[in-house]
Amino acid sequence: MINKVVADADEAVRDIPDQAVLMLGGFGLCGIPENAIAALLRKGVKGLTCISNNAGVDDFGIGLMLKTRQVKKMISSYVGENAEFERQLLSGELEVELIPQGTLAERVRAGGAGIPAFFTPAGVGTEVAAGKETRDFDGKTYLMERWLRADFSLVKAWKGDTAGNLIYRGTARNFNPMMAAAGKVTIAEVEELVPVGQLDPNDIHTPGIYVHRIFQGRGYEKRIEQRTTRKS
């Protein structure tokens, strides 16, 4: 089997240049590539375009890279929980493209599936449709949306093997599988890295063909945004 293992996050992101287009998995702070983000902070790479459903919070996730002004543009569906984000947006330092969440997921999926465009009903008649082709199918109007692809995709999985096969856990799967497929170079970090043969092939969510580099992450914080509990 091909061995995709790199030593750590710093080695994994070593060649990400300024102005790179990145995809980062996660929904809110759930399933985000914590270690790769920390390595990008250390590396200090700038002018990044980040495709990610959300933009983290002020002191965690992509929010950390906003604070250090490493992000030029965000492509997201919802960016609500971040004061520094708001400041940079209002001052014009940060460019933002907002995309309906299902359209974002499908544009990334299309990018990883070799499909340059597709038609969706989401956004018809809204400002999202501005400048886009529409077409009627069976009496309903649809909007043409293009694929999204990235120079580097940074994904987070629960378990992975040295061949790059990945298994996600819970709702931490979210955008990670599509982003893994849509990166020219895909970097996966996992909580548990095992030798080939230890994962049941029936259980694999992302086949190793999509993953170029894999490493075992360290010190996962897995921060919770809205800790909501019941008494008993």
Partner: peptide, 9 residues
């Protein structure tokens, strides 16, 4: 503007 999330879909 915080974004539309999944509402439009």
């Amino acid at each position: 503007v915080k974004g539309m999330g999944g509402a439009m879909d």
